[in-house]
Write a protein that binds this DNA or RNA. Structure first.
Length: 569
RNA sequence: CGGGGCAUGGCGCAGUCUGGUAGCGCAUCUGCUUUGGGAGCAGAGGGUCGCAGGUUCAAAUCCUGCUGCCCCGACCA
């Protein structure tokens, strides 16, 4: 491709709207342009990268035996009503009406449509297992799109759905997809981890996420330094303390704590460490009342764990101010478990405290020297908190470290959640009708592009790994407009490389060398060839990798072979 | 949804407080010079200042309403 014919507009200045590195670089390199909040156009350069990602995904999906299909983006409401998600899915589901006032959705995912296909097409256990996948545009009306294409509303996803006659087959299909994902992300040269995950709105049982490690990631992951354990913090179990609770040493005492509504304020005011204070959160109960969740002051509530507790409303909702007042007689900021008239769950760590501080359920008052059993009944205890850095690993080996990740893939064993709701059955060996089991497997194609940049950039721009690079080589001739020998040699080299199947961006612009170097580095083309009069007289061409600091002189005659070897390596 | 901020040529910004000829840098176009790290000179094009009302002799600027975008929050009682 000749740069002079390629509409890439690079900028030196970073657009004000971009917050994270990948978004900034994608805008500066002219890969994407924003059309509306969370909605982007992909320009030629950016789309080339998307296609590279898709290509690797297709190859590995096909290798794993999955079959490509293409389902519609716009889907009839009936299917969603049938699965129950017309109501369940909430405001992220973009709903619309056609000219006949019929309800439709713009698909955020395709379980309904694919299950409909399966129940129509699959009749016999002999046709199972089968795995259908597609690479297609999704729309999720995110509350808050951000970070460019990392959390957009419209995005490209590879989604796959497998159908099985029994559990063993579903587990095998899941394992095959897991292996395929490892191959794909390895080929894309992403630094990733697979982690145990919550199943969330999709539903189902076993599930793992593939997380690209990056400080800008939105997900927190707990990784053990003692073994292979890794889990999303949403799910990672916090081990209960192993030491016995200390015996009470202090007397119960009421202390005035005017306006001390937060743990930080309280801790500073009383000179008591945060981990010696309790916080009491009231959440809605399933019966219309409230449930108290009690945590150590330095811990955070884990909503995913909490909403699974008996009696707690799912999804988790904090109690209204009125409900708080009714249950405690106080206002938020001074709540405590002592004398509280509602079910109480204490986190294991909170239950292990002695002589702690908590709210007195009266304005501007807290209790000090409080002890379970002595001053109030022993509470039900549960795992309610997020694990923190340094917690023991739930496997018993090593400690947990908290790292950040970008979720680029997620695989689930769905079981019968959709097949049952939508009556997707086949006949088994004995002619009995059985409900198929399903697995589903997603990959955020466009998000991978951003994630790769987050992991591969420097102060000058992007550094593409070969498999995702929009072009393998950038060919920069110097003084092209003036030097006939340079032009002849560059044209010839460009043609030779192209004929050898190398993807070359030929910078034939009438621009100064500095401009070309700067653009090549911003665009992140991994291999650079520079052709100047000086080198030409010696019969050589300069080569430099985007990550390298120095040039190498390569004899002109062997440049193509040299580049092919680099790309093969 | 709550809070904060922003909206002026393609991009980045000034001008708004204190109303009075719309400006700067980058980018773009033309010409000449220049050509190994974002060139110089000379010239040119491009903006109904987000939209709609209002105040005023006069509005980018003041007032009202709306829209869009960005950031933070939406457990930490």
């Amino acid at each position: 491709m000749r740069f002079s014919q390629y509409p890439i507009n690079t900028t030196k200045e970073t657009p004000a709207e971009a917050e994270v590195t990948s978004h900034q670089l994608m805008l500066r390199a002219g890969m994407i342009r924003r059309v509306a909040a969370g909605i982007y156009s992909w320009l030629p350069l950016g789309l080339r990268v998307v296609r590279k990602v898709e290509h690797i995904i297709r190859e590995e999906m096909n290798r794993a035996g999955a079959l490509e299909i293409l389902m519609p983006a716009v889907q009839p409401a009936e299917l969603w009503q049938e699965s129950g998600r017309w109501i369940e899915y909430g405001p992220e589901l973009l709903r619309l009406k056609d000219r006949h006032e019929r309800d439709f959705v713009v698909g955020p995912t395709h379980e309904e449509v694919v299950t409909d296909i399966a129940r129509r097409e699959l009749r016999s256990y002999r046709q199972l297992p089968v795995n259908f996948y597609q690479i297609q545009t999704k729309f999720r009306d995110e509350v808050r799109p951000r970070f460019g294409v990392m959390r957009g509303r419209e995005f490209i996803m590879k989604d796959a759905y497998s159908f099985h006659a029994d559990e063993a087959s579903m587990a095998a299909g899941y394992a095959a997809m897991r292996a395929a994902y490892v191959r794909m992300f390895t080929r894309m040269q992403l630094n990733f981890r697979s982690v145990q995950a919550d199943t969330g709105a999709i539903g189902g049982s076993a599930s793992e996420e593939f997380q690209v490690l990056a400080d800008s990631g939105e997900d927190a992951i707990a990784v053990s330094d003692g073994d292979g354990f890794a889990a999303n913090v949403e799910l990672a179990p916090a081990a209960a303390p192993t030491q016995a609770r200390a015996v009470p040493a202090q007397a119960l005492e009421k202390v005035a704590t005017p306006h001390m509504k937060t743990i930080a304020d309280l801790s500073a005011f009383l000179g008591v460490p945060r981990e010696q204070c309790l916080k009491t959160l009231l959440v809605d109960a399933t019966d219309g009342g409230v449930v108290a969740l009690v945590l150590r002051g330095d811990h955070e509530l884990n909503p995913v764990k909490a909403q699974k507790l008996k009696g707690v409303a799912n999804p988790l909702r904090m109690a209204s101010a009125a409900a708080v007042k009714a249950a405690s007689g106080s206002e938020p900021g001074f709540l405590g478990p002592v004398g509280l008239d509602c079910p109480i769950y204490a986190d294991h760590a909170a239950r292990n405290l002695a002589d702690f501080v908590c709210g007195a359920n009266a304005p501007d008052l807290h209790l000090q020297g409080v002890n379970w059993a002595r001053d109030l009944p022993e509470p039900a205890s549960a795992d309610l908190r997020n694990v923190v850095d340094g917690d023991p690993s739930p496997t018993g080996k090593g400690q947990l470290r908290i790292v950040r990740g970008i979720e680029v893939g997620h695989i689930f064993q769905l079981g019968r959640k959709y097949s049952q709701a939508m009556n997707a059955t086949v006949l088994d060996e004995s002619g009995q009708s059985i409900t198929m089991l399903m697995g589903c497997y997603g990959i955020g194609v466009t998000r991978i592009v951003a994630a790769s940049i987050e992991q591969n950039h420097d102060e000058r721009g992007i550094i593409w790994p070969d498999p995702l690079a929009p072009f393998h080589v950038v060919l920069i001739p110097l003084n092209l407009q003036k030097s006939a020998p340079v032009r002849a040699a560059a044209d010839a080299l460009y043609a030779e490389l192209a004929a050898a199947g190398v993807e070359v961006l030929y910078d034939d612009r009438d621009a100064r060398p500095g401009v070309k170097f700067a653009d090549a580095e911003l665009l992140g083309i991994p291999h650079r060839l520079v052709l100047g009069e000086r080198g030409l007289q010696a019969g050589s061409c300069e080569y430099r990798h985007r990550r390298a600091a120095d040039n190498e002189d390569i004899p002109l005659a062997s440049v193509t072979r040299f580049i092919k070897a680099k790309l093969a390596g």
